[in-house]
Simulated scan of single mutants.
Amino acid sequence: MVTSAEWNGRYGYRGTTEMELHPGGAVRGRSNPDMIAAGAPEIGVDGEVVEVDPPHRLVQTFRMLMDPNTAAEGFTRLTYELKEGKDGVTSLTVTHELADAPNLGRLMSGEFEDMGAGGGWAWVLSDLKSLLETGSAFGD
């Protein structure tokens, strides 16, 4: 769901993310059409795959290109981990290391949701959960 552009464009900010799934591979998060119409760049996030162990773990760098302040903070580290529990339920843990990126940290915490910037990771992951459980994301 996270690595497939067919799926990852169906929840959250609705921009597809394309990944070359090997260490050193490019990560390109495309802005959705509404974001582009509002002046966002076509590529809103870029990065590089650091580690990939399908389907258990993906580590990548992440740089938000939507505004100069977040872009200037450089690359952060983003880790996705999937674990299947004893009950057959799979859990997803997302760790975004933001200590050196205070502007991005505020954005990803959902601080700017009221200004139309979305609700950060909590909102994205909640939307993914809704999509997986019901077949519909928030905006469907």
Rank of each mutant, 00 (worst) to 15 (best):
T93K: 04
G25T: 02
A38I: 06
V52K: 10
G39E: 11
A38C: 09
V2P: 00
N8S: 09
M35G: 11
G139Y: 08
D87W: 02
L132M: 15
W121A: 01
S130P: 04
G39T: 08
R77T: 15
P23V: 07
A71D: 02
W121F: 12
N103E: 12
E48S: 14
G139V: 10
F75G: 01
D87R: 03
T134M: 11
L125T: 01
M19F: 14
A101F: 00
S31I: 01
A26V: 13
M1A: 14
T61M: 03
G105H: 12
N69P: 00
H22D: 09
D34V: 06
R28A: 08
W121H: 06
G139L: 13
R30P: 04
P55Q: 11
E6N: 06
G116F: 04
A122I: 06
G25E: 12
D67V: 10
F138Q: 12
K83W: 01
E48W: 09
H96Y: 13
Y13W: 12
S126H: 13
P41S: 01
A117T: 04
P23T: 14
R77G: 05
G120Y: 09
F62E: 00
L92K: 06
V45Q: 01
A38M: 15
T16P: 07
F62V: 00
T93V: 14
D34W: 11
V27C: 07
V94I: 14
D46R: 07
G119L: 08
T79Y: 09
W7P: 00
T93A: 14
A99S: 15
L82Y: 10
G24Y: 04
T61E: 07
E42N: 12
Y11D: 02
A122Q: 15
L132D: 01
E81M: 02
G88Q: 13
V45W: 05
G39H: 11
T93C: 10
D114C: 03
V124P: 02
A117F: 12
T61G: 09
E113C: 01
D34C: 00
T61P: 04
G139F: 04
M108L: 15
D53T: 13
E113L: 09
Y13I: 05
N69M: 11
P41C: 03
M64V: 14
G120T: 08
A117K: 05
E20W: 00
E97A: 11
G25M: 08
L21W: 05
